Simulated assay, not measured.
Amino acid sequence: MTDGSPYWNDLLKLRDPAWSEPTKAQQDKLTADVQRLAYRLGGEIWSRADEIADVPPRTRDAVIGYAPDRYLATLRALRAVKDAADAAATLIASEAGHRGAGYPQLGKAWDITRQAARLRWPGAVSVINEANNREPIHFEMYGGEARVSFHPEEGGWWWIATAANRKVQEAPADLTYDTSEEAAAAAGAFLAANTTDGE
Rank of each mutant, 00 (worst) to 15 (best):
N165G: 15
E154H: 10
A173M: 07
A173C: 05
H151Y: 03
D174Y: 04
K167P: 01
T162S: 12
V168I: 12
G143Q: 10
G156H: 03
P172S: 11
P152H: 15
F139G: 06
S149Q: 11
W157Q: 06
R166P: 02
Y142P: 04
R147L: 15
A163I: 05
I160C: 15
A171P: 02
P172W: 10
E140C: 04
Y142E: 06
V148C: 08
K167I: 08
R166C: 06
F150M: 02
A161N: 06
W159M: 02
S149I: 07
E140M: 06
E154A: 10
E140G: 02
E145Y: 13
G155M: 03
G144W: 05
M141N: 11
W157N: 05
W159R: 09
G143T: 13
G143M: 09
W158S: 00
S149E: 15
R166E: 08
G144L: 04
E153L: 12
G155K: 01
S149H: 13
E140A: 08
F139H: 14
A146L: 13
G156L: 00
E153S: 12
E154F: 07
Y142G: 04
Y142C: 05
E153I: 06
K167L: 13
Y142A: 12
G143Y: 09
G156E: 06
G155V: 01
A173G: 02
H151A: 05
D174K: 08
E145G: 13
G143W: 09
E145N: 07
E153A: 11
G144Y: 04
M141V: 11
Y177W: 09
M141P: 00
W157C: 05
I160V: 14
Y177I: 05
G155A: 04
P172M: 09
P172C: 05
W157V: 12
N165E: 03
V148I: 12
P172Y: 13
T162R: 13
E153V: 03
W158Y: 05
E145C: 07
Y177E: 01
R147K: 10
E154C: 05
A171T: 11
Y142W: 09
